[in-house]
């Protein structure tokens, strides 16, 4: 039998230990590989921090104003934020199992608006406006289907998993802006945005690792690291093809484990 330096599972573990240096010890790798995964299933509940896949995106809308076209560009940011995750992993055979996890992420941040508003009296005399919206919410709920390889050693087990993800994302979008103007109308000032809630779904993928530490036979604690990615198009009026944005991201969290 040909031996490679590291199996995929071991490589994943090594990556995990790099991210969790307190747990890392290279000599454990061989020991893990020899143990049997005896649990029928494990349930994990995590809370942590998600770094979104794309932290910025923008929209550009137009609308007729004073016989010309006003253009509004909105730059959104999606900062890292808290996520919640829950999942179940069922052993199928040997070290292999399948599972499903659901994660939810919500974060709000103001968007920057810039635009050019036509003049009421003169053609080709655009008036710039700039401003910030109130915090706009990004929410993502993802269902991660996982095929997992689990390595155990006594109280510790590690699941390396990957598979498809299905995202349902919501985003507050600045569908329109309001502005103030007064005679002689040579300037216009941003007053606020008309916010619409857009939602979209898409499929993507996930890959990650989950480490559990048994405090008793059926209860433990653990850590999770997962990367997921998808791409959605939020519908938005006055745009040609909606707003494209990436969803998912890098999740790192910890929580409780139940073993059956």
């Amino acid at each position: 039998m040909t031996r490679r330096l590291l199996s995929p599972a071991q490589a994943g573990l090594y990556l995990l230990f790099l991210l969790f240096p307190g747990v890392a010890h290279a000599q454990w790798l061989g020991h893990f590989a020899q143990a049997q995964w005896l649990d029928r299933a494990r349930v994990s509940i995590n809370v942590g921090v998600e770094q979104p896949a794309a932290t910025t995106f923008s929209t550009s809308t137009t609308k007729p104003v004073y016989l010309e076209t006003a253009t509004i560009t909105t730059a959104y940011s999606v900062p890292k934020g808290q996520f919640f995750d829950g999942g179940v992993l069922v052993r199928v055979r040997g070290h292999f199992g399948v599972g499903v996890a659901v994660s939810a992420f919500t974060k709000s941040d103001a968007a920057s608006v810039s635009g050019a508003i036509p003049h009421p009296f003169l053609f080709n005399t655009l008036r710039p406006i700039t401003g910030s919206t109130s915090p706009l919410e990004r929410s993502e709920t993802a269902v991660h289907i996982q095929a997992a390889y689990v390595i155990t050693s006594g109280k510790i087990d590690v699941a390396i998993s990957g598979g498809p993800s299905f995202f349902n994302a919501g985003q507050d979008l600045a569908a329109d802006v309001t502005y103030t103007e007064a005679y002689p109308y040579d300037t216009a000032s941003f007053a606020g945005a008309t916010v619409s809630k857009a939602s979209a779904t898409s499929a993507g993928f996930n890959a990650g690792a989950d480490v559990g530490y048994k405090l008793s036979k059926s209860v433990g604690v653990g850590g999770l690291i997962r990367f997921s990615r998808g791409s959605v198009v939020f519908p938005l009026a006055n745009t040609a093809s909606g707003v494209s944005a990436n969803v998912g991201g890098l999740q790192a969290g910890a929580g409780i484990r139940f073993f059956f």
Binding site: Y66, L67, P120, F123
Partner: peptide
Amino acid sequence: AVVTGMGVLSDSKKVS
């Protein structure tokens, strides 16, 4: 309202 007007010299302008 603002409408488009064609002036005496056939030039286009906005009219309040």
